[in-house]
């Protein structure tokens, strides 16, 4: 990396980390405004969308006479699948376009291509956490037992999900740089992912000889593991921490590596 350390502006003297924080803060303010500010309904949709999805699926299960899935109330079961999957399926397109849609701002040397990616990651995680808590608060008010059984593994599963999404998102930034059609291909992949990630079913509901059809999918593992942590009554037969951790490290390595290789091309 060519050194520009000596070509600095005369603004308050800051170290590299402070500059990055200031830049991410500046990006955060404008991204949030662009995302939620243009329509007052922005925040509403963030909560309403997963609720609508859960309502449709919940209705279907109620119609066929189920009140619980894998010993868990249908509503809770669905939300603990829909919400993490939503995070994953929103992070990938958001992160992958983070660099391409902020090119004009790389004119300022303070703004590194990875900054908008980090910004979008922060926004999506914050939205996810708030939506999760709002929905669970409402369910608690309705009389459900919404407190996770084991907090630490629950946060670990979510943390691994975030690392996987960040790594893949960063790798997709490089893909977007190379091929304009990447977003189309991406949605072709993430849409069917909804049906094989255990959003509306658990491993215990399918025969063991068919597990291998879903076993490759780290998101399936994560949803299984997070339900295992969330509900005392559910124990996952397939969720594998080791596999998910390796996958997370692999995607992080891939993402950072491709970013490093392409960093010069990103700003052009």
């Amino acid at each position: 990396m060519p050194s520009f350390s000596e070509l600095t502006h005369a603004a308050p003297s800051r170290n590299a980390f402070k500059i990055m924080c200031d830049t991410v803060h500046a990006l955060l303010m404008r991204e949030v405004k662009a995302r939620f500010g243009s329509s007052k309904l922005g925040y509403f949709w963030a909560v309403a969308e997963p609720i609508a999805q859960a309502a449709v699926l919940g209705l279907l299960f109620t119609l066929i006479g189920r009140t619980s899935l894998a010993n868990v109330p249908v509503v809770l079961f669905l939300f603990t699948g829909i919400l993490p999957f939503k995070l994953f399926s929103k992070l990938l397109p958001q992160l992958s376009l983070g660099i391409a849609s902020n090119k004009a701002l790389f004119a300022y040397r303070q703004v590194a291509p990875i900054d908008p990616v980090i910004t979008r990651l922060v926004i999506e995680i914050a939205t996810y956490a708030i939506v999760y808590m709002v929905i669970m608060a409402v369910l608690a008010w309705l009389g459900f037992d919404v407190v996770p059984d084991q907090l630490l593994p629950f946060f670990m599963a979510n943390g691994l999900l975030i690392i996987i999404s960040f790594g893949l998102g960063l790798a997709l930034c490089a893909a977007v740089q190379q091929w304009d059609d990447t977003p189309k291909l991406l949605s072709m992949v993430t849409t069917p992912m909804f049906y094989v990630s255990g959003v509306f079913f658990a491993a215990t509901m399918i025969p063991a000889q068919y597990w291998y059809l879903l076993n490759w999918n780290p998101i399936f593992h994560i949803i299984e593991l997070s339900r295992d942590a969330y509900f005392e009554s559910y124990t996952t037969p397939v969720g594998d921490w080791q596999y998910v951790t390796l996958f997370a490290l692999g995607s992080l390595f891939l993402g950072l590596g491709l970013y490093r290789i392409n960093r010069v091309r990103f700003s052009a």
Binding site: L7, H9, K103, R109
Partner: peptide, 26 residues
């Protein structure tokens, strides 16, 4: 201005250099 990188080599200066003021970018 630090808006683009050299393919090889480097540019250094002890001076405070602005960002590129232009119609495109910025």
């Amino acid at each position: 201005g630090g808006a683009d990188y050299p393919s090889k080599g480097k540019v250094t200066s002890p001076l405070k250099v602005s960002w590129p003021l232009g119609l495109r970018g910025g």
